[in-house]
Design a protein around this nucleic acid. Structure first.
Length: 293
DNA sequence: TAAGATAAGAGGGACAT
DNA sequence: ATGTCAGTCTTATCTTA
């Protein structure tokens, strides 16, 4: 275990966004960039400590799920089981306290507590949460908090982290777990993108298909068919300006019809978080394209 | 009962002023 | 900065097969 050259503390950890390796106690930046993928640093939590191979590896579906189950397990236990989570929050706080100094302390503390809760409710991995914390730190540095609610900004930061890592979570999801209005989150999110000059990839509807299919109980075979439909629709330029989840949901509906799987528009609309009307509207355009193929 | 149609309203982007 | 415009999505209600 490597020590911090400045204070001698044995807890080094990595900033998942910048790749910096920093001391958990004093915040000293030990190395600017990761030199390799070996997980030689200390993990944030007990759970991660027991599964270090996960740290720093590229995210995959399987790994995401694995992270998810450990996080949930921790939360499901009552009372003192939460100590792990609070401690990890406290650890992070120590680092960022040192970095940001002074008046932002209380702000950060409150934001990180909220962030932990939101990430947990949205079943997001530690990586995403760390990324959100990084975004929020930048928000603080830019002084964007003045006159705005901490909860709104941290929620928007988390949403931004999801978007930039192509993790399919909607504004609606975020609004639901945070109790903040969708439009307020959206407004803060846009502000963050602009002020931090953040570039997020355009949401790929294909990524949403699997999740919706799972929630609606649609078969593997039909799901694959839906993806093919969706891809050709995108190739034909039918996706411009349309909500990604609406497209994904409609492809699934179309695939169900073609495969003879009996799902109603309502079933799929509910699973996707869009209305039946949206599905119908997309349905028209999508069918036209499919006929040409 | 599921699916299609219609209408009113909200929110945000593009563009011009 | 502010206003208009076109387009999307949502909610609600009614009609059709």
């Amino acid at each position: 275990m490597e020590r911090c050259p400045k204070c001698g503390y044995r807890g080094l950890l990595v900033d998942n966004v910048t790749g910096e390796i920093v001391c958990a106690s004093c915040g000293y930046v030990v190395r600017e960039k990761m030199e390799d993928n070996k997980p030689e640093w200390r993990a944030f939590t007990k759970e991660e400590g027991e599964d270090r191979s996960r740290v720093g590896a590229p995210t995959s579906l399987a790994m995401h799920d694995m992270g998810l189950s450990t996080v949930m397990g921790m939360r499901d236990a009552s009372g003192k089981a939460l100590a792990g989570a609070s401690r990890s929050a406290a650890d992070r706080l120590r680092v960022w306290d040192k970095r940001s100094q002074g008046s932002a302390d209380r702000n950060l503390r409150q934001a990180l507590v909220e962030l932990d809760m939101l990430a947990d409710k949205l079943s997001l991995s530690k990586n995403i949460a760390e990324r959100a914390a990084y975004v929020y730190r930048k928000v603080l540095e830019k002084g964007l908090v003045r006159g705005r609610s901490i909860d709104t900004l941290i929620t928007a930061s988390l949403y931004a982290a999801c978007r930039s890592s192509e993790t399919p979570r909607t504004l609606k999801d975020a609004a639901l777990v945070s109790g903040i209005k969708r439009k307020d989150i959206a407004k803060a999110y846009r502000l963050i993108l602009k002020e931090l000059d953040l570039k997020v990839p355009v949401t790929d509807p294909v990524k949403s298909v699997t999740g919706i299919a799972a929630r609606a109980g649609i078969s593997e075979r039909t799901t694959r068919r839906a993806m093919e439909i969706l891809k050709s629709a995108i190739a034909a330029g039918a996706s411009a300006g349309k909500a990604p989840t609406g497209l994904a949901a409609t492809s699934l509906y179309l695939a169900c019809v073609l495969e003879g799987e009996r799902k109603t528009q309502k079933d799929i609309a509910e699973a996707a978080g869009v209305t039946e009307v949206t599905i119908r509207n997309r349905y028209r355009g999508l069918k036209a394209i499919l006929n040409g193929v």
